[in-house]
Design a protein around this nucleic acid. Structure first.
Lengths: 208, 208
DNA sequence: GGCCTATGAATGAAGG
DNA sequence: CCTTCATTCATAGGCC
């Protein structure tokens, strides 16, 4: 079985799907819509990922423990990224790249304090993030700066697929998206989903 | 082996869900709307999980190989689905591609306004270009961004010390290739989270 | 099928 | 904050 991992890096897949959808549905509305059913499904998907991760970690721990006992850890020729305390390979790239862990923390914080992160806050965060990899206050600052700016741009940048309309329709596409509060449940479960929240029950992973 | 990666393969659950949406949602009732921000959030979350899983799997494989060699597979207490399972690959698809007509317009505009395309301009252009096919402001923006950057690089790419410039000296003496089927990029860019780092729910996040 | 190149997109950082 | 640059990644599409 060949599994294909979802790659959402290029904001493409999901967004595009929705975009097209909006255009095709031709009910005059060009919005991205999800049914409850789809919503639920997505939640499950994410939850499944969470579970897989957990299990993998667990598995790895067991594995490590075994090796430890067997005394196999010495001079191990491989580099275990999950065990080794890490600094990033700055040799390879000079610019900072957030580790997954850092990313999660950052996003989490961002969700909470939408507004300007105070200087003190940044310092605290930097200290915390430093535990998960090399980082500087500037990095954190930039990250927030960029994130705000880009989310904003994205909101006004989305344009309905109008093949026949003349030039004006779009120009002020400041169609401010409606408020996120409608999908509160999603907001809750999306970031660091706690299994209990979004995980109705174990789907098809029973066979592990 | 029974273990299945739930629904994340191509043509899997998610895709089907999104695609069918266009057809069925026409009732316009009982739907939920996602903002771009939420979209982004979701995307990020999933991406993070994908990354984590990848790292774990990769690491686990190395680990397993290690054990194999060492003959340490002593009646392992758990069933290891990853050693046998196929390799994974990040896949996505479908990105915007300018139609010939669009390209022509873009190039034309580029020649005129050598430099910065103002924001207003972009919006106008997007509207215009939309007549020739699906497009978004972001597409236009990116196009100009890339074009400028790449032209620039091409010019300055030539060796400083060498007055003789071959027609199109390979811009970057580097044809550094990326290993297509490994998670190389991942190893490089997101190396070393420790165990506690990768937990889907970071324990200490709530204090912020 | 695998590799290569062109290019769309994401994103860290700098300037103003 | 906003805009812009630079770098990097991933994909489409062509070639073999």
């Amino acid at each position: 079985m060949k599994m294909e991992w979802p790659n959402f890096q290029q904001g493409g897949e999901m967004e595009r799907q929705f975009q097209q959808d909006g255009g095709d549905t031709s009910n005059g509305l060009c919005v991205k819509v999800m049914t409850d059913e789809q919503m639920e499904l997505l939640r499950k998907q994410i939850a499944v990922y969470a579970m897989i991760c957990e299990q993998l970690v667990q598995m790895h721990k067991v594995f490590s423990a075994q090796n430890e006992i067997a005394g196999m850890r010495m001079g191990n020729p491989y580099f275990d990224p999950f065990v080794a305390s890490g600094s990033q390979k700055l040799t390879a790239r000079q610019r900072w790249t957030p580790t997954p862990a850092q990313l999660q923390i950052l996003e989490h914080v961002y969700d909470e304090c939408k507004g300007t992160p105070r200087k003190q806050k940044i310092q605290d965060m930097t200290a915390e993030l430093a535990k998960h990899g090399q980082i500087s206050e500037t990095n954190v600052y930039n990250w927030f700066q960029n994130r705000r700016a880009r989310l904003k741009r994205k909101q006004s940048g989305v344009v309905p697929n109008n093949a026949e309309s003349e030039a004006e329709t779009v120009t002020h596409a400041e169609s401010r998206k409606q408020n996120p509060e409608s999908i509160q449940s999603l907001e809750d479960s999306a970031p660091p989903p706690r299994d209990e929240d979004i995980y109705p029950q174990s789907p098809d992973l029973d066979d592990w």
